[in-house]
Computed example of a mutant assay.
Amino acid sequence: MSVINTQIKPFKNQAFRQGKFIEVTDEQVKGKWAVFFFYPADFTFVCPTELGDVADQYEQLQKMGVEVYSVSTDTHFTHKAWHDASDTIRKIQYTMIGDPTGALTRNFECMREAEGLADRGTFIVDPQGVIQAIEITAEGIGRNATDLVRKVKAAQYVAAHPGEVCPAKWEEGSATLKPSLDLVGKI
């Protein structure tokens, strides 16, 4: 079963953000665009490259009205320790949610039950709390934050322009499509 076009489920988790421990809930997420960026574990290999890549795009995402939440089944204490120990993770300004029970990871259906770890899952959530896009990759395949920004722009465009859709490789400012009977078989 896919969680695409479904409402995020209620949650309340501890997190680390900019030197402080905070609580994050589903209600706090609603009202603006959000990216949930699940990854297997702190102090690993591909994960810091991905989180650092998102950190490099965070200012751009903020300008677009998007908040980022990275999530692993580690604790918020482990996130702080990793932040303190790694130059790559130290540059992160977004919220790092701890999910030691795995409840949030299961809510997004990206838990590897046998290992107790999250898959590499990216979820774009609209201001109403509805999941608009999903990307899940296998353990050894890192994601690209530049393409994440492109996908968020496409999701925001479609939300703001009912009746229009973004074709493959759409970039901001490019032509969109207006699905109709006239387009059938002509693309």
Rank of each mutant, 00 (worst) to 15 (best):
E135S: 12
G163E: 07
Q128L: 12
V46R: 07
P10Y: 12
K169L: 13
P127W: 03
V71R: 08
E50C: 08
D74T: 11
T25A: 08
I92R: 03
Q62V: 13
A160F: 04
T122V: 13
D26Y: 08
C110Y: 02
P127M: 09
T88A: 14
I22K: 04
G65R: 11
A154Y: 00
R150G: 00
V165R: 14
A55H: 09
K178D: 00
P162Q: 14
Q128K: 15
K20V: 07
A159V: 01
D56A: 15
F123L: 03
T49H: 10
D26I: 11
G129L: 12
T137W: 06
E139P: 12
T137V: 13
A175G: 13
E23Q: 12
R90A: 15
I134G: 06
V130Q: 06
V46W: 02
P179T: 00
A159I: 04
Q57F: 08
D119C: 11
T122M: 11
V29T: 11
R90I: 03
I97R: 04
F43I: 08
K32M: 12
D84T: 03
P10Q: 13
V46K: 11
R143Y: 01
T105C: 03
H161P: 02
G116P: 03
R90D: 11
V130E: 07
H76C: 09
L183R: 14
K91A: 14
N13H: 10
Q28H: 07
E135I: 03
P10G: 13
S174G: 14
V66R: 05
P10M: 07
D147Y: 05
T73W: 03
T73Q: 10
D84Q: 07
K30T: 06
L117G: 03
D147T: 09
G142H: 08
E115V: 07
A168C: 00
Y58G: 09
P127E: 02
D147G: 01
A41D: 11
H79E: 08
I187M: 14
Q156P: 05
G65D: 06
Y94E: 06
T73S: 15
Y69A: 00
M111G: 04
D74G: 10
D42Y: 09
T78W: 01
V46M: 12
T73I: 02
A41L: 15
D119F: 14
T25M: 07
G129W: 06
V66P: 11
A103I: 09
R90E: 10
V125G: 02
V3D: 09
R106A: 12
K9I: 01
K91G: 04
S2H: 03
E171F: 07
I4M: 10
A160V: 09
V149C: 08
I97Y: 04
